[in-house]
Structures are given as C-alpha cells and as structure tokens.
C-alpha cells in the first residue's frame, strides 16, 4: 500500500510540477500573477475531453492541437489585456496588483463559458485505463503516461531554458528586467513570449490532468492555488525547485489521503505552505533575500 500511494503521489506530483513551471514562467518572467491559470488548464482539459469523446482523438494527439492553442490564446491575451498594464506600470509591485485584478476577471469569463457549454458536473473519459504492474502493485497506464509526459515536458523546458540563448535570455529577464535591454533583449517581447509559454504549459497540464482525474468547470481555482503553493515552495523562478516541490506536494497529499483522511489533503497542503512562508520565505531551495 505504501508503494502504491507513493506511485500515485508521484503521478500527481509530476502534474503539479508541470503546471508550477508554467506559473513560475508567467510570474517570474512576465511578472503577471495569473489567477485564471487553473481555469486555463481546465479549458484545455475540456478541449482534450471533447476531442476524445466526440472525435475519438486520443489525448496524446490532442496535445498537438491543445498546446499550440494554449500558447496562441495566452499570447493574444497578453497583447490585448496585459501588455497595456505592463507598459503603464512603473514598478513590478504595481503590475502584480493590476494583473491580479485583470486575471481575476478573466477567471470568471473562462469559467462562465465552460459552465455554459459543459454545465457544472464532473466529467472524465476513459483512456488507457489498463492496469500496469509496477514492483508488485498496479497503476493505471494513463497515470504512468501522465507522469512520463509531465517529466518529459518539464525536462524539455528546463533544458531549453538553460542550454539555449533564448532560454538564457528569458531567465535574464526574470533576474533583472532593468539590465536585459543592455544586451539588446526586448523585455516586452520576451515577457509576452514567456507568458504564452506558461499558457502552453498550463494547457499541457490540463490535458495530462484530464487523462486520469475527473474535473469540472469550477475546478480551476484549486489548480491555481496548488500551482502557486508549489511555486512558492520551490522559490519563484526556480524551475528545479518547482519540480522538486511539485513531487513533494503530490506525495504528501497522497500519503495524507491514504493514511489519515482524504478530507485533510487541502489542510496538509496549506500547512506545508504556511511553514514555508514562515520559515523559508524564499522557498525550499531559494537563497535568502539579500
């Protein structure tokens, strides 16, 4: 039972890590605190759901459509709604407040549209629901696939951000938006790109979630909060931190649900969150603020 709980937790944690990476890109680079992040995920989950149930397109193929759509939509939203705020903001604190207000509105728009189309019920679909034997316990194949996808996407992103010049430029904007223009980096453009990339990750997270969890039009806010908790646990802008924190959170939640009570998972999440905020405000792996 312990092994089975650990494996389930690892799957959940992989998803958390993936979506936290997207949020940390949007927040760390574009300085946008996106409260509609989870709703974006859910929209993508519905996208995969529709593709699978009405067109018979499996979610792996569905990703090929849903991820670019997430990128394009985020790119457009940034240009229309957030760029004006970013241009006007004299300092990043101002942009944070403005972006929270703007994306809070966006949350209800996305949720409202999803409610109109899909109603308030939980939905799910059955894809690759075949048990796979791992070290004596079984795990559904869709969960194994979810974990593999999350880790592959996360690793790919990490590699691109650390081993390519444009990835380094994205991190440079996160580190010092004031200094970035000194080397010819267009901060506006990079911010927009990073926000869109974050949207693509949210979309991929949504597809991954749809493969093994039930979800509903109003489930987004939980994912926003979880992603936020993981980002803060890992340290804002710290991708490896997000990966580790995501895995830890997934495992802790599953252990609490298995051995104590399912109702206490959220409480456990926030206990960890509080402890980090109080004792390690710059994250598990972050350096102390200078």
């Amino acid at each position: 039972m312990l092994l089975s709980a650990l494996l389930t937790g690892l799957v959940l944690g992989g998803t958390y890590a993936l979506i936290a990476m997207g949020l940390t890109l949007q927040y760390g680079v574009a300085r946008i605190m996106n409260l509609a992040y989870g709703d974006f995920m859910i929209a993508a989950a519905f996208g995969a759901f529709v593709l699978f149930t009405s067109l018979g397109i499996n979610p792996l193929l569905g990703m090929i459509a849903v991820i670019p759509a997430g990128f394009a939509l985020s790119y457009a939203i940034y240009g229309v709604m957030l760029q004006p705020l970013a241009r006007r903001a004299k300092h990043s604190g101002r942009l944070e407040v403005d972006s929270i207000l703007a994306t809070f509105g966006l949350l209800f728009v996305i949720q409202g549209v999803a409610l109109v189309i899909f109603g308030a019920n939980f939905v799910s679909y059955s894809y690759l629901a075949i048990p796979i034997n791992i070290l004596g316990t079984t795990l559904a194949a869709n969960r194994v696939l979810a974990l593999v996808l999350a880790l592959a996407l996360g690793a790919g992103l990490y590699y691109a951000l650390t081993h390519t010049r444009w990835g380094t430029a994205i991190r440079a904007v996160a580190v010092s938006p004031q200094a970035a223009p000194l080397v010819g980096i267009d901060v506006d453009r990079v911010s927009r790109f990073a926000f869109a990339l974050g949207g693509a990750l949210a979309a991929s997270g949504g597809v991954v979630v749809s493969m093994y969890l039930t979800f509903s039009a109003t489930a987004g806010v939980v994912f926003t909060m979880k992603a936020l908790v993981v980002v803060i646990m890992g340290g804002v802008g710290n991708l490896l931190g997000a990966l580790a924190a995501g895995l830890i959170l997934g495992i802790v939640e599953t252990l609490v649900a298995t051995y104590i009570d399912t109702g206490l998972t959220l409480a456990a999440t926030y206990l960890i969150f509080l402890a980090i905020l109080v004792f390690r405000p710059s994250g598990l792996f972050g350096r102390r603020p200078s």
């Binding site: 991190r171 440079a172 580190v175 010092s176 004031q178 010819g184």
Partner: peptide
C-alpha cells in the same frame, strides 16, 4: 554594473552576444 547576478559568468558573457 547591471550584470545578471543569478546567472553564471559564462551565461552573462553569452548574453552579451545576444544581438
């Protein structure tokens, strides 16, 4: 100075050739 404090020396120099 305006360098990227959290990046490595090599990354800072590589960004110099961003243009």
């Amino acid at each position: 100075r305006g360098i990227f404090g959290d990046l490595t020396v090599a990354e800072n120099l590589s960004l110099g050739a961003y243009v």
